[in-house]
Nucleic acid binder design. Structure first.
Length: 272
DNA sequence: CGTGCGGCCTGAATGC
DNA sequence: TGCATTCAGGCCGCAC
């Protein structure tokens, strides 16, 4: 499931492949995957040059000349990539962007949870989801990070997953960073000590940077801009490892539900 | 303010 | 073998 490191990997990989190219035509196979009017969507982007590809939270954003923005949310199983020219759209291919050099960008999503949307620069800033995103974990200061959690009663795992509090963290990196920091996911934010907040701040940044360096995690479906898997899933400490031994103390790892999400914890290393 | 649940989706894994 | 159930989970809307 593409979280911050996976979307960052896609943005970095795809930008040099598409920048300064023009979208000649768009094929929409599943109009419901487009947020808004699909016909207007096609008109907005045809004959527009791509000038930049970047990430905010888990959003993949293409900036086009003329201040239009093409925005993707990949949710769990979405993929945005450039296949070889002879690859035909399959049943999970919902939108194809045909570029002026004959290459094409595929938007695929087996589960159809993802979406693509289009905004003017002004409308992007007005879009509530975008406008209310919390700070980026790799840019926020230690003090500001601590302030995000120290006044809230909610459980730290739920707070980490709340995009309005901090942006881009999903189930994998929430579990990994909490384990690294020795914090139980059910601990209320306002019960964390300054030391624990410091550990979480540094460990979250560390795991995100390491995951980006490894090209993201391909636990189930994630692929990069060229269709290749990431490697960080080989470095998971606890995610998806229920029943296995804690890498630190060898206690059997357990799961609990927090905010509706399965959370993997070491009952010895992570105390409430 | 905080929590829980259903809905959106499909495919892999599991149960009988 | 084949059918039914469960699970995966980001985000929203809603009830309490």
């Amino acid at each position: 499931m593409p979280e911050l490191p996976e979307v960052e990997t896609i943005a970095r990989g795809i930008e040099p492949l598409v920048v300064n190219k023009t979208i000649n035509n768009i094929s929409v196979y599943y109009p419901k995957i487009i947020a808004g009017d699909a016909e207007l969507f096609q008109k907005t982007f045809i004959r527009q040059k791509i000038v930049r590809v970047w990430r905010r939270a888990k959003l993949l954003i293409f900036d086009l000349a003329g201040s239009a923005h093409l925005v993707f949310h990949l949710k769990m199983t979405g993929k945005v990539w450039l296949p070889h020219r002879d690859v035909r759209p399959d049943k999970h291919t919902h939108v194809v962007f045909h570029l002026d050099d004959g290459e094409s960008i595929f938007f695929q999503d087996m589960r159809k949870f993802g979406y693509c949307a289009f905004y003017s620069t002004k409308d992007l800033q007005l879009w509530n989801f975008f406008a209310t995103l919390g700070p980026e974990p790799l840019e926020v200061s230690h003090d500001e990070f601590s302030r995000l959690f120290s006044s809230r009663k909610g459980r730290i795992k739920a707070l980490l997953l709340d995009q309005k509090i901090i942006a881009g963290v999903g189930n994998i990196y929430a579990d990994e960073s909490l384990f690294m920091a020795g914090i139980h996911p059910e601990t209320p934010g306002n019960r964390l000590s300054a030391r624990e907040l410091g550990l979480l701040y540094h460990n979250l940044k560390e795991v995100l940077v390491q995951a980006i360096d490894a090209g993201g995690s391909s636990f189930r479906d994630y692929r990069n801009a060229l269709g290749y898997s990431g490697r960080f899933q080989e470095s998971f400490l606890v995610y998806g490892k229920k029943g296995e031994c804690c890498p630190r103390c060898k206690t059997i790892l357990q799961t609990c539900k927090v905010a509706g999400r399965t959370s993997c914890v070491c009952p010895a290393c992570q105390r409430k």
